Amino acid sequence: KFSEEQQKQLRSNPFIEKVSETSITYTKEFKERFYKEYHLGKGPSAILRDMGIDPTLLGKRRKDSLVRRVNVYEERIDGYQDMRGKNSGRHSIKELSDTDRIKRLEHQIRYLKQENEFL
């Protein structure tokens, strides 16, 4: 967990949008730049230092997670945009094809049957 002093230090960085005791939200620019520099062969700690973030403050686990996440962001349709709170992640049934809708309903039937057997 980040102390109040560490949170204050992180908030002062222009590449960080939000900081809480347990999480950091980076800007879109940060994620894009981190991805590019990482794939040019630069290490995560060096990239963070260049962007004014103390890598020891984050620790190994957060740095490893950051590398994984920026690689995922690069593959997403939404790219590096933070989509939390804007998308429930669940597709509307209206968007499904007939085949997918049938599969979903069959799954729901199987689930309800199991639930009834349990009761």
Rank of each mutant, 00 (worst) to 15 (best):
G43F: 08
K28L: 11
L66I: 06
V19G: 01
R76N: 11
H39E: 12
R49M: 13
L96G: 01
Y38R: 07
L105C: 04
K36C: 01
R101G: 03
D64M: 04
D78F: 11
G79H: 08
R11D: 04
S88I: 07
R110M: 13
T99F: 15
V19I: 10
F34K: 00
S23N: 13
H39Y: 15
P44Q: 03
R49H: 11
V70L: 01
L112Q: 12
R104H: 07
H107A: 15
G52Q: 07
S97L: 06
I109A: 11
V67T: 05
E106T: 11
L48N: 04
Y80D: 01
Q9R: 13
D54L: 10
E106A: 11
K113R: 14
D82L: 04
K8N: 12
E32N: 07
R90Y: 13
R61H: 04
S97T: 15
N71V: 07
K31H: 14
E4H: 07
S3M: 05
F15A: 10
G85A: 03
H91V: 12
K113A: 10
R49K: 15
S12V: 00
S20R: 02
K31Q: 14
K28H: 10
E74Y: 15
Y73H: 13
F2G: 03
G85K: 02
E29Y: 05
I77V: 13
P55E: 07
E74G: 00
G89W: 04
K42V: 15
H91W: 02
I47Q: 02
T27H: 03
M83E: 10
E17P: 01
K60Y: 05
Q7T: 06
E32C: 04
